[in-house]
Nucleic acid binder design. Structure first.
Lengths: 181, 181
DNA sequence: TGCGTCATGTAACGGGTTACATGATTAT
DNA sequence: ATAATCATGTAACCCGTTACATGACGCA
């Protein structure tokens, strides 16, 4: 059950409402870490509050409830972080599709790989920009910015995907006896 | 519903029993593409057979049933492959944990990153070995080996993870004002 | 004969998706 | 006024996990 720990983790940074958290998933987490929508987030927040892991710290307009993590919640999050499972279960539809590329013929494989090369380049540019912006605003002597680490991981992952897609396209061309200028 | 397409894809290569397919998931797919166990695979095969996408082509000892993909099944697989979704939903607990590294202090983050560096190195070595073995046995003028492509993707992904973990450890050390010899 | 592997299943439960549903506030 | 955004929820269904369950075959 990773959703609750994702929520606890986000609330450990700063208090937020279900709506805010939904936005954070959509903007930051869902591209490479975890995906959830409001209809899953709201009931889970209610459950977490019932268990005392989070608490409502403010109520605003339109029924908005701002949650904050409690000490119990922090302890639960810490415990979860410090005890990772031995093996991580992977379920990645993109990689599955790449795995099954061999069921297609070369032209079709190329048609699938080209958008991969393009989209990874776009993601890469977006991430690079937001990292550069963050690096520039933070003072150079700042405390260890641990959140910078995962951004770098994302960056490198998209770079890898991009390089690989270009390599794969090239290899298909060669095996196919064709050359592109 | 990717499981059925994973099964169709594996059966597109060669006929297999539920037991065989369970083994393929455990050995090949589950580390980076898709995960499923026998209790999910057997019922799905029954369903696929009911819909005419696969068919039993042999029955052996101990109730073993060998399935093969049908023309209908091939058409369904092809259609699925050629129509990828606009956005891929990602749910990766490992990356989520890296995302939440910033909720820990530097010593704890280091303790989590060290095994990452080690395990990715091991995975890398295993994959490299099996790729080299496959490259060596295949004739150099062989037809486009599309299945070689995803192996390369796995290789590069683990390399990226490894390099990143070492970089992250180093960066934490620096920010922490410490040096390791 | 007994252990390991091959081989297949069922049932209950929990997590995640799709679809449905409502209403307040703010900006134009 | 009215559209966009903010803000929260419920219910049915499907997929995946955990636990339970059984038995045949091959080898030492």
């Amino acid at each position: 059950m990773s959703l609750r720990h994702a929520l606890l983790g986000l609330l450990a940074e700063e208090p937020a409402s279900g709506y805010d958290l939904t936005g954070k998933f959509a903007r930051a987490l869902q591209r490479y870490a975890w995906h959830a929508k409001h209809n899953q987030i709201y009931p889970e927040l209610t459950r977490l509050a019932g268990e005392g892991l989070v608490a409502v710290v403010a109520e605003g307009a339109r029924g908005r409830r701002t949650y904050a993590i409690t000490d119990t919640g922090r302890a639960e999050l810490r415990n979860w972080m410090l005890h990772p499972p031995d093996v991580f279960v992977v379920r990645n539809e993109f990689v599955l599709r790449m795995f099954l590329l061999s069921t297609l013929d070369p032209d079709e494989a190329r048609a699938l790989l080209r958008p991969v090369a393009e989209e990874s380049a776009r993601e890469l540019a977006t991430l690079r920009e937001s990292i550069d912006r963050a690096d520039a605003t933070a003072p150079p002597t700042a405390a260890p910015e641990l959140s910078r680490l995962v951004a770098e991981y994302g960056l490198r992952s998209f770079q890898t995907m991009h390089d690989w897609a270009l390599w794969a396209l090239d290899r298909i061309d060669q095996a196919d006896g064709r050359r592109e200028p």
